[in-house]
Amino acid sequence: MTVSAPDAASSPDREDHLVAGFAALAIAIHILEAAFPSPMPGVKPGLANVVTVVVYLRYGIRTAAWVAMLRVLVGSMLIGTFLSPTFLMSATGACASLVVLGIVGSLGRYLVGAVGLSLAAAFAHMAAQITVAYLVFIPHPAILSLTPILMTAALIFGSVSGLIAASVDGLLRSGDGRGK
């Protein structure tokens, strides 16, 4: 998305605008969330993932990946954790949840909706983070003993985000219907 001669190859197209808009929304949520105190490192609602799931449902995995990656990158720069352990964990978590989104999403849109996608993504996110925390930062069994708590958090927050994503997606769909 370079700003130069307005030829077709380099000028932002519709998808670029979409990605930028959704990424900005996700980054705002990400930063708002970072401002809230967390009961435990690694436990936070992950409401920014609502954006990822909604974008995935509406525009597919490519756009969702752009939005998620931009969120992690820009969010970490704004919060000040770029290239820190937090950044590595968040990037790995985002990658893992995108992969799982793609897999679970391909099972059939009418079978698995936003809640299932969000739950699966939350678990992938958590599993990737625990793995990175254990293998890279603190190779001590005590980290693994946190797994049940973190998984419980993933279950609760994944379901909540999923319900939010499902209703947002529903509202957007009905909005589409009226627009046409």
Binding site: L111, V112, A114, V115, G116, L119, A120, T147, P148
Partner: peptide, 28 residues
């Protein structure tokens, strides 16, 4: 459009099972 679809419940049950298993495995 319903908020929760059948597959969602399946995913939820699997996830809850995973949580239960993690308690048994790590805190057993």
């Amino acid at each position: 459009m319903r908020l929760v679809r059948p597959g969602d419940m399946v995913v939820f049950v699997l996830a809850a099972g995973l949580v239960g298993a993690s308690y048994a495995y790590f805190w057993g």
